[in-house]
Design a protein around this nucleic acid. Sequence first.
DNA 1: ACCCATAGTGTCATTTTGTATACTAATGGA
DNA 2: TCCATTAGTATACAAAATGACACTATGGGT
Lengths: 122, 122
Amino acid sequence: MDRCAPNRSPGCPVEGALDVIGGKWKGVVMYHLLDGTKRFNELHRMMPGVTQRMLTRQLRELEADGLVHREVYAEVPPRVEYSLTAKGDTLRQIILALKAWGETHVPYYAYDKKQNPERLKA
Amino acid sequence: MDRCAPNRSPGCPVEGALDVIGGKWKGVVMYHLLDGTKRFNELHRMMPGVTQRMLTRQLRELEADGLVHREVYAEVPPRVEYSLTAKGDTLRQIILALKAWGETHVPYYAYDKKQNPERLKA
DNA sequence: ACCCATAGTGTCATTTTGTATACTAATGGA
DNA sequence: TCCATTAGTATACAAAATGACACTATGGGT
């Protein structure tokens, strides 16, 4: 295996990838968006643990990294739709792999899988 | 796609998996350990950006999560060897996928790959 | 007139993460 | 005798990530 480059903070490609999806909620946001376009509050309802502010930030960062597309409709009440970009979609297999791994290796989910043995593909 | 569970902080399997390898240095540590057993300072030299303290912390967390095995030899000077556990090795494909993704999608590395087009497998 | 909803923003507090620096103990080498 | 090495720990501190909570504008319903 090759050495991991001169290595400062974004020293490794591994680290670079993790910087992009490693935010506390980014993985989950991406996961939900795999399923298709979602509005802001739709995402929010799917992730009750996150505050509006954090969700906004994470979405903005994902947008800045080119993984998520933000479409604003000039309506009242406001409507904003989020979807994966082509680049974002390149993470699909990784997100699904993380989900599968979490389901089999994070104790908290192990039981859940037995009761709900759906295929691990979207 | 299924709803993401009652969803508190470790609400998603995706999030659970990310908690485990999402630490700032954990991905890189795991990546280096894919290659085989390493001593503390060996890892440290491979990641000049990390302080001893952080490296220690990340290794302890990985150990606590059962991904890394820590073997202490009662010698002088001290010797401690780190290696992947069987559970840790289940992340191999994911780490390699993250590396491949980083190399093609994180701008910083894109050029690097052209100059060094090694196979993306270990 | 009052309340609801949307997609946020502003302010502040707390938690997590990271850094710097000095310290340890036993041994081998100069 | 002094210094380097190993794999850390202790203490103190700074910075970044995250969280709680109140607030906004607009229009529709009652």
